[in-house]
Design a protein around this nucleic acid. Sequence first.
DNA 1: GCCTCTAGCTAATCGCGTTAGCTTCAGTGG
DNA 2: CCACTGAAGCTAACGCGATTAGCTAGAGGC
Lengths: 196, 196
Amino acid sequence: MPKARLTPASVTEAAAALVDEVGFDNLSMGLLAERLGVRTPSLYKHVTSQAELAHRIAVLAMTEAGDVIRDAIQGRSGSNALAAGAQAMRTYVREHPGRYAAANATRPTGPDDPFIPASERVLASWAAMLSGYDLDPAQEIHAMRTLRSVLHGFATLEAAGGFQIDASVDESFTWLINFIDQGLRAGAANGSDVGR
Amino acid sequence: MPKARLTPASVTEAAAALVDEVGFDNLSMGLLAERLGVRTPSLYKHVTSQAELAHRIAVLAMTEAGDVIRDAIQGRSGSNALAAGAQAMRTYVREHPGRYAAANATRPTGPDDPFIPASERVLASWAAMLSGYDLDPAQEIHAMRTLRSVLHGFATLEAAGGFQIDASVDESFTWLINFIDQGLRAGAANGSDVGR
DNA sequence: GCCTCTAGCTAATCGCGTTAGCTTCAGTGG
DNA sequence: CCACTGAAGCTAACGCGATTAGCTAGAGGC
């Protein structure tokens, strides 16, 4: 029955869709093979191991997230760019929780790992967005880390079902964005105050 | 050689120490048994499964974190309480990354899961701390979620080695705390502004 | 001093990732 | 049109880690 059906890319794509459904921790070669209508060992013609597959999902996720965030920020600045970028990231994580989990579980395997440029693209988008706030250059790194922390923290807590109370999570997120925006604008106003 | 050596509690404690060393994902019954000087199947006299063991570690972690945060906030208020509590949490996660990972990987198993009150104790500490900021009651939930997001996000990013650049992570964390503090104080001043 | 209860042990099972080696179609060169 | 090669899939089998079954021996109570 050999018919040129699968490729590394198609297997990765299917695996990404699978983890979004069943959760990254529940990824298994057998389940993926079943989805693809193929026997488990056949997958090894396209990926060398489950670990490599997980890493491919991570690269895919980081690339997609980078695209989505860049597109959201495109053409906006300041508060609008922040709100659009943050919403875009949150939406991506909600729609692709498995991919996002894969991206968080991975570590660069070497200096030429495609995961590295993919991550850097995301960071570059955030940096571009932050540049609209006229922060003291010495504080940019701290603002960047704070921004990453909130967004990552909110996304993972939400994905894990960490927000139990019935109060609207959407509302909390816009509140959070507004909170960060005001802090950044205040920081731009009196640079040396925020940050010690 | 039957000698009453192990107990569920001692096994859990050893497992917690182990995951802090090797990482939560690398927890294995064989490795734990070796540490305890016992054969793998013997562990099942004290724990019903690896999943249950992981859950016990999670409860232990949440309880310890609750203690540490409560103690840090004790006797302080406002900015001091925030700084002390946040630092306490960050220190706990840095010293016990495996335990923290276990706590994040777990979901309550039922209505009488001891993990629930343990988590609530942590939330109660944060709530007590926030009450020192005189926020609009309607905004407390959002402030709480924002606070949890930053702290959780920063801790996990740091634990995952997510902050690459050489700029001081300690400094970034104090900057972050200061950022949150100022935002909360501003929010208390003009309540309806922050939060839309 | 015997009895029971149980922590620990060895042996075996199961599931899942992975490897080895065979088989068969798709496309190529003659 | 046909033999040839290469890769994609398959079956069979291995290995490791979690888990289960059933045995054994020391500790504490009578």
